[in-house]
Design a binder for these strands. Structure first.
Length: 200
DNA sequence: CTCTTGATCTTCT
DNA sequence: GAAGATCAAGAGC
């Protein structure tokens, strides 16, 4: 059968500095859509995130610091990784300022770099399912508790600015039971790489 | 397609 | 003891 051409690998934008995260979580979250996230060179374009802030009960930081969430109470620009349902890892980017305890949960990527490695880790071929959920993308990128508290502007983590415009849409957050009506989920309208479509 | 269930860590009651 | 920022597999329609 005829060989199928691979899609071109998108050009990487300017590296994001840690200061990108030193502002309101509600500004950072939509601005992260379209940013490329790599761990040891493997990853893709962020297509879905959710914002969490300590002033609302769905946030892990709502009841104050614990051993798990202490990174959320530190300075912005660091990774907060936690165990979800005893099984998966989920990764957040800490925002605002030390003590603010706000973060953006990374929920889905469009795979662009190291797709072969992601397929191996996920034991899965379908590129649309490699990173279409917070627990899936950490497995695909090899993120574990070892990445908790790592800076977001230093190896092994790299973030690169958008190189093209994206249409960002907002909706209510997924899979939570508290503060369910806050419209703090952001994503690329119509993307095939979301954990779930945004309602019309 | 939808619905149900099991996996089992961290925190809260 | 119960719930949770999840996922995959299996049953049923």
């Amino acid at each position: 059968m005829a060989p199928k051409a691979n899609p071109p690998t998108p050009r990487l934008g300017k590296p994001l500095k840690r200061g990108f995260f030193a502002r309101s979580v509600h500004e950072v979250a939509p601005d992260l859509i379209g940013v490329t996230m790599l761990v040891d060179g493997v990853g893709g374009i962020i297509v879905e995130v959710e914002a969490y802030h300590h002033t609302e009960p769905a946030a892990h930081s709502y009841n104050g610091p614990t051993p798990r969430n202490q990174v959320m109470f530190g300075p912005p620009g660091f990774a907060y990784v936690y165990r979800s349902y005893g099984i998966h890892w989920c990764v957040n980017f800490v925002c605002e300022e030390a003590g603010s305890a706000s973060a953006v949960l990374i929920r889905a990527l469009e795979p662009t770099h190291g797709i072969a490695a992601m397929r191996r880790r996920r034991h899965l071929d379908d590129v649309h399912a490699l990173c279409s959920g917070p627990g899936k993308l950490t497995e695909a990128l090899g993120i574990t508790i070892a990445h908790n508290a790592l800076p977001l502007d230093r190896s092994p983590i790299a973030l690169h600015a958008r190189t093209a415009d994206v249409e960002v849409v907002a909706g209510i957050r997924i899979g939570i039971t508290k503060a369910v009506k806050l419209p703090w989920r952001y994503g690329v309208k119509g993307s095939k790489f979301l954990s779930k479509p945004f309602p019309k």
